[in-house]
Amino acid sequence: MKLNDDIHNYYEKLLLQHLVDLGLDKSKNAEYLADLICISLNLLPPRYIRYEVDMAFYLPQSERFEMEMKVKEAVARAQDFLDTKRD
């Protein structure tokens, strides 16, 4: 049995967008980014969806804002962890 390719964690999209907004996709290497993404996602609750349009129409603005804040916090914590471990 295989999961449907359409099913994914919505936090992945929010996380990747935040990394681009921070410019980390340009300033960090692939190894660092892979570790950062894994650690950050492990700090976030899963939010599985099938269609992006579902989130666009049915997610209240307040909940979206809360999710974005959780992503920012998770990335900051993951960066602190990685930067401390790599020094």
Rank of each mutant, 00 (worst) to 15 (best):
F81I: 13
S27L: 13
D6C: 03
E12C: 03
N42M: 15
L16D: 11
Q79M: 15
P46V: 11
R47Q: 08
V53I: 15
P46A: 06
Q61H: 05
K70Q: 15
F57Q: 08
N29C: 04
S40A: 15
L44K: 06
L24P: 01
E66A: 13
P45I: 00
F81S: 13
L16C: 09
R86P: 14
R64M: 12
E31H: 08
K2A: 04
Y10A: 08
Y32W: 10
E52S: 11
E31G: 00
N4R: 14
D35L: 05
L19G: 01
A76Y: 02
E63G: 01
Y11T: 05
E63V: 09
D54V: 10
A34F: 05
V75D: 03
L19F: 04
K72G: 05
Y11D: 03
L22D: 04
L14M: 07
D5Q: 13
V53A: 06
T84C: 07
A74C: 06
S27C: 02
K2S: 07
D35P: 03
R86K: 15
L15G: 03
L36R: 02
P45K: 05
D25W: 03
V53P: 00
C38V: 06
Y48G: 02
I7M: 06
L3H: 13
Q17C: 01
D21M: 08
S27I: 14
E12T: 10
D25N: 11
H8V: 08
H8K: 14
A30D: 12
L16W: 09
